[in-house]
Design a protein around this nucleic acid. Structure first.
Lengths: 373, 373
DNA sequence: TTGAAAGCGATACCAG
DNA sequence: CTGGTATCGCTTTCAA
């Protein structure tokens, strides 16, 4: 019943060689003739060899070092992501994991340096928020060549040969925002504004497209305006939205796809247009809480940073431990936060930060933090 | 830097005894004098002994047998839960896990027998949907006395000394339903119906209360009617809702807290009242899909059966592997499914069932299935 | 380039 | 009741 596990010894005996050779062959360590190596690999496949991880961890002195390259947490988003990573890393008491946090202050600033640093430190894996995928691409490729798995969090780095991606499904975000907007505005006509950071960013373009197309097919009496690009700055967000409010007299709603929603609210308030607007935002941070509670923001799409961190580390661990080379992409569904369930999410966030501070790190998890720029 | 792990040998040497004795003492196996046992436990605590799980799994022949006692999957809900359990069980390639599925056809029918069977088979852990907690309580207590961890899924068994609980936060479900309902019905007045299975079930009462109180505080112009109890039968659901439609002329919405939503829709359709109603349902199953797509159902609250299964197994594993005795309760946030994001969830469900069927079970996971009644 | 052997830390079985 | 020891499958080092 219980299928016998194939071990190194089995392979060795079947081949009339030694367990040491088999081991070297399977790990393409130096010192194996190409032919024996081929024979070993062949036989291993035939016998369906699966390494016994318990034995591996037990005998191996090796510790897995992973670099976590993210934005410095101005908002709580990246703090939550990192918390999720820590938690997941600590949850497997088996392997020795060493976490190295490298942060950069702004989009496109210092991230290449941080990535280079991780590479030159020869870490075993990298979790990265590729804020400007373009610049990072050659370096991710280099990591791939060095067989260092790279997993992107929150945003993809397309065509970069990164091994994994964990993000919120942009299609879902955009579509649910549209469907909610349509329902909330039942019976009304008018224009809807959408703000993004930059349409060059895949995620934002994806959300806009999903929003626009869902709106068009389900609620054709509402028209979606061209996207407002704020390039991640509050000034631009404020200015452009204010201008829009002046120009467009029949604006009835706004969907903010990024976390830069406060300036939009301010502009609307300033123009005394807030009451007539249905606003759907993204993410959840302290300044947004009173806006949700007061009803100024009808709903916010919570991108579950903690879950993203957890899943990203899981995916990376799989690559580091089991090897494998087929890329793994994971799209999470966002949560919807409204007045009704706001407290649940706030409670959860605070509970988890309490847990974290009172829980000493397990002995096997070492940490290191570096800021870039 | 790297803290030296304390091993059995350390403890043994410090006490001038042998590793065998230490081992027996720590596992309160027979054959240790009370005093040496006390000394060992003391020393283990002082040295901060943490068992090395890799070594344990490697040397131990033991396989963890867990019984999964759930409703037979008439709907897809329990199939998804079981799939999540399987997946999570297989994801740790380290330990040998044996899954025993015991199912019962209806609420309160055969579940005690199934639980007894699990107990008499001396499984190492039990995952259970306590459909009638009352009847199960003494048996769960008995399991606790035998040190067999029991984790409840989807519904709690209060006061039963169960070790863990994984469920959807009922407060969130009820509140978000209320907030959505209020927004969807913006500006309208009238009555809202809520159907539950039975107010004696904690979960359902919780959802009703959360719905009612959120509605009262945020949208006081809408009045929530007394709950309709369908006792899980379609006939009752249909009959009672139909009656309500006749009696209550200003009904504008309905919130179905259980998966028995189709009869409600039928009744409304039959009375030609569907168009005037905003309906929010629970769960996601094939018959509901066209209703969501057509807009008859404005939104459904998806209780993430797969995630519940995964988390439940995780919690149970923790108890089985690490011991521990402080109960662990986990409340998940539900997902909101509307026309806009429906396809995402359907795709995900089907993708996962495909993955499952094409992926042969790993050698270490044996299965067994028994129906009760 | 290969073989042999010493651990890793716990479990499980001996013999005393 | 207690001490000793073979064993699990792999990594790693040392000899050949």
């Amino acid at each position: 019943m219980a299928k016998e596990q194939t071990t190194l010894l089995h392979i060795a005996k079947a081949l009339g060689t030694s367990i040491g050779t088999v081991h070297r062959a399977l790990h393409d360590n130096p010192g194996v003739s190409p032919e024996t190596k081929a024979r070993v690999l062949e036989m291993a496949k035939n016998l369906g060899y699966r390494p016994n991880l318990a034995a591996r961890f037990l005998s191996s002195k090796r510790t897995l070092r992973v670099s976590i390259n993210t934005l410095k947490g101005t908002t709580s988003f990246w703090d939550e992501v990192r918390a999720g990573i820590r938690e997941e890393a600590a949850s497997h008491p088996l392997e020795n994991v060493e976490l190295e946090f490298r942060t950069y202050p702004r989009i496109g600033e210092g991230e290449v340096e941080a990535f280079q640093a991780a590479l030159s430190e020869k870490v075993n894996g990298i979790l990265v928020f590729p804020s400007s995928a373009q610049a990072l691409r050659p370096w991710i490729r280099r990591a791939a060549r060095a067989r260092i798995p790279v997993v992107c969090v929150a945003t993809d780095a397309p065509e970069s040969s990164r091994q994994g991606l964990v993000s919120i499904d942009t299609l879902v975000s955009g579509s649910i925002a549209a469907d909610l907007m349509g329902r909330f505005l039942l019976g009304r006509k008018g224009a809807i504004a959408v703000t993004v950071s930059d349409m060059a960013i895949t995620e934002h373009a994806g959300k806009y497209d999903a929003f626009e197309s869902t709106m068009r097919s389900l609620y054709p009496h509402l028209r979606v305006l061209k996207p407002i690009e704020d390039h991640g700055t509050e000034i631009e967000a404020f200015g452009r939205f204010r201008k829009l409010l002046e120009e467009c007299r029949d604006l009835v709603g706004a969907y903010v796809t990024t976390e830069v929603s406060i300036p939009v609210l301010q502009a609307a308030r300033h123009a005394k247009a807030l009451a007539g607007l249905t606003i759907i935002t993204t993410d959840l941070f302290p300044d947004l809480v009173p806006e949700i509670r007061s009803g100024a923001v009808a709903a916010t799409i919570y991108q579950r940073p903690r879950a993203q961190g957890e899943m990203a580390f899981r995916v990376l661990r799989k690559f580091m431990v089991e090897g494998g080379n087929t890329p793994d992409e994971l799209a999470l569904a966002p949560h919807l936060v409204m007045r009704g369930n706001l407290d649940f999410f706030l409670r959860r966030q605070s509970r988890e930060s309490i847990k974290e501070s009172s829980d000493p790190l397990p002995a096997s998890t070492e940490e290191l933090a570096t800021d870039f720029v």
